[in-house]
Amino acid sequence: MSGGGVSRLTVALGLAAVALSVVTLVGLPTPLQAVAAIAVLILLPGQALARLMQVTDLALGALLVLALGLATLTAVSTAMFYLAVWSWQACVVTMGVITILACMARARQEAAS
């Protein structure tokens, strides 16, 4: 735990979401761009949302990271297409915001516990 009762992992997830979103939008060489984009679009939001569930089973937690990340990105992308506002950059920003919001919710849980 950090000083305010919020875990370091929560803070790290939020900061990583900000940093990787910016890096992905700016652009990297192809293999690094793929790693950064997959992290910011799937793994980080999946991890941040799965932590809200307070899963104790490690295997279920890992599975939920993938399932929640993919499902949330699908929902966001589909909604953007229906609203005719889709761009991959907008998806990156939205998933970054979702990750940060989930980290804030988790921080409140941790501060209250």
């Binding site: 761009q33 984009a37 997959i38 679009l41 589909t78 953007m80 005719a84 889709w86």
Partner: peptide
């Protein structure tokens, strides 16, 4: 950048394709 459901069946269930489009464009794979 939009969905026209009259094109064919794929555009009536576009979720996976929206995911694929985003991932391919964002990763550059």
């Amino acid at each position: 950048q939009g969905i026209d459901p009259d094109i064919d069946g794929y555009f009536n269930w576009p979720g996976f394709f929206a995911l694929l489009a985003t991932l391919l464009r964002a990763t550059g794979l």
